[in-house]
Write a protein that binds this DNA or RNA. Structure first.
Lengths: 239, 239
DNA sequence: GCTAAAAATGAACGTCATTCAATTTCGATT
DNA sequence: AATCGAAATTGAATGACGTTCATTTTTAGC
């Protein structure tokens, strides 16, 4: 598997089948086509409505009716954009992860130590998941969250793991495997904290454990995890 | 949270409300009550039928009708034993985990190094999950599997983690947190291998990573993970 | 046997995800 | 501008399934 770090490529799946509309842009007053514009709006409205309903009621309890209504489209229309409810949930979570990934990247691209970049990333995700009530319902479908996290943040995380390995800070054989394990561990811990099975205070320790997985050694893991951390930038209006 | 290591306590939840039947055992030809016996058989039949159907079709696609039919009870009867389909799935997975935990314990109670005990445990679970097709469908509900694993194998795993920490092999602050992370990581890796996102060969490396989480250090993790391993005893007839 | 309580039954209910025939919108062509 | 075929949208209908509950069966003491 290879990853492309171009940010614009992070929207992983385009479900819809774009036919050859606007073959001739010419001097038409609709250079992009009204259909294409409406489709963009519809898709966006559906993802946002999906996010609102699913994060309020949970992915399973969310109904396609309510989502379609909030997005102001007919119930059947959803299925020209997403092939199933599951597929919509995936799109929603990829959006959430994508936005968070970008906000993290904005901070960490000023770090010099790649180990610190990875540490900041995993901690920020756990804090977002446990600190924002909107994640609570989503975490009831851990595999959807973890898979979206894997795909959307993987390009960054795997790059950081490899950078840190090259700098001899981490000892990582297979960064993809490690990231797969980390995503599930992150989701598991976040769920447990939100369900109050684990104390909120254990987040520090969880970050240390995720760092230990990289082979950095416990002492250094603790040091890296405890470095002061800059604040994250503001989140985008909806997500 | 505290754990009781008495094996018989591992059946975590008894859903049914046993009333005060058989107040007088006396010299009755039914010293335990016909009802209680039938209930035991029914519950057992339901768990086994649940296992068969759910591991064949997946927890979500399994229907209560088919399960009830395979267990030879009416559809409504299931709900005197389990309060929901989810609840039955939990009972099924706890049974699976319980049985595997016992088979692992039979082997590892002959080990002297507690680090090796933990390593054998996590590896055996991953190999069971990735080697037995019956797990494939169950892994589509990672949180059910991971939670059952946490509860049923936790008493052993946490004990081993603490033993190894006392022996200065592991450096573990909070064994419960670590085990929570490990269960989800194990499920995540197993899913990825089964879905062929990750090569089956990476299981060795996954075990190393799980050991690294304990703070043992990478070199020693590799050594422990590579020790020769005795074979597991036979599985119980149904599970 | 008789009886009241407990357990079991399976048909019926309600809730969706998904489908599809009918309708509307679009944009190219005349 | 009027027309037309294709594409997109719609929302009522469908089917599947978890769960409930009025009815029937079983149980155990008398």
């Amino acid at each position: 598997m290879t990853f492309d770090l171009d940010l614009s490529s992070l929207v992983v799946q385009e479900t819809i089948k774009f036919k050859g509309i606007n073959a001739l842009p010419s001097r038409n007053p609709t250079p992009k086509g009204r259909v294409a514009l409406r489709q963009e709006r519809n898709r966006e409205a559906l993802v946002q409505a999906g996010y609102r309903v699913m994060s309020e009621k949970g992915i399973d309890a969310a109904t396609m009716q309510e989502i379609a209504q909030k997005a102001d489209v007919g119930a059947g229309t959803v299925y020209s954009y997403f092939k199933s409810k599951e597929d919509l949930a995936v799109a929603v979570l990829e959006r959430v992860m994508h936005n968070l990934a970008i906000r993290i990247e904005e901070v960490t691209n000023q770090f010099s130590d790649p180990a610190q970049v990875y540490a900041f990333g995993v901690r920020t995700v756990i804090e977002a998941a446990t600190g924002d009530l909107r994640w609570k319902q989503l975490l009831n479908r851990p595999e959807v969250v973890a898979d979206a996290m894997f795909r959307c943040m993987g390009p960054f995380a795997i790059r950081d793991l490899q950078n840190a390995a090259r700098a001899n800070r981490f000892k990582v054989d297979d960064a993809e495997l490690l990231w797969k394990m980390a995503t599930f561990a992150i989701v598991g811990v976040s769920r447990a904290v939100i369900q109050e099975q684990l104390s909120h205070r254990l987040i520090d320790e969880a970050v240390v454990r995720l760092l230990c997985m990289t082979g950095i050694g416990e002492a250094e893991a603790i040091e890296v995890a405890n470095r002061p951390r800059p604040a994250l930038g503001p989140e985008s209006p909806v997500f």
